[in-house]
């Protein structure tokens, strides 16, 4: 993609929009703004932003409804930025296709990091076959994982779990999503199994399993593969 990435902000609070505009422009993004959900939908359709930052509490519509409408055709990243911080709200937004969720008040550095991750993921659409993360190397076609050039013995479930998270690096995957992808629909409530496998996997791939940097817990929501 040529030129700066354009980011559309859909938020009714002008102060937040201004703050985001200053921060994002300073970091080399082009910023578009809409104050209502309706305008946001039109702007998204006509201006083709590379990423959308969406507030959930809009004056004219529920942000979740806007998210659903956007996701009918918009395939680029959407990051939710909202004062709502209950696990339910976050999980719902992620389940409806938001790439990430940040609650207000937020730290600008955190937001910029999430934007970078989301944009990178959407740019690298064609998937690499061998993923490198520091000393860890995941060879997807050969189902092989190496750490410091040593082959790790992973069960096939562990491998599926690791590669699922790694392929979505930086993105939060909800418990339900991971359980559904790896074990199937009937296991979506069995978060304890997921916990057990993540703990096993951490012991094998993390440098320090008690301070994980690759398989990062998003409390109450899911896991994110660290950068």
């Amino acid at each position: 993609m040529t030129g700066p990435n354009t980011i559309l902000i859909i938020d009714d609070e002008i102060q937040i929009r201004r703050l985001l505009e200053i921060t994002l422009t300073a970091n080399g993004y082009k910023v578009l703004q809409s104050g209502t959900g309706k305008d946001g939908l039109i702007d998204a359709a006509t201006l083709h932003p590379s990423l959308i930052i969406l507030d959930l509490g809009l004056p004219d519509a529920e942000g979740i409804e806007i998210l659903k409408k956007l996701r009918e055709w918009y395939s680029k990243p959407i990051i939710i930025l909202s004062v709502r911080q209950s696990e339910d709200d976050i999980v719902t937004a992620l389940d409806y296709g938001a790439n990430d969720y940040l609650s207000k008040p937020f730290r600008s550095a955190e937001l910029l990091a999430r934007i970078r991750v989301a944009l990178r993921a959407s740019d690298n659409k064609k998937e690499a076959e061998i993923l490198h993360f520091g000393t860890l190397c995941i060879d997807l076609p050969n189902h092989a994982v190496r750490k410091n050039d040593e082959i790790l013995k992973l069960t096939s479930t562990e491998f599926s779990l690791l590669s699922l998270l790694a392929k979505n690096q930086g993105r939060v995957l909800t418990h339900q999503y991971i359980l559904k992808e790896i074990w199937g629909y009937s296991y979506v409530e069995q978060t304890q199994y997921l916990r057990v496998f993540v703990a096993q996997l951490r012991k094998k791939v993390e440098d320090n399993p008690s301070k994980p940097t690759l398989l990062v817990t998003e409390s109450g929501i899911g896991y994110r593969f660290g950068e």
């Binding site: 978060t191 304890q192 916990r195 993540v198 008690s210 817990t217």
Partner: peptide, 9 residues
């Protein structure tokens, strides 16, 4: 279900 380690971290 949670790991205490996650909580402390």
């Amino acid at each position: 279900w949670h790991e205490i380690n996650d909580l402390f971290n």
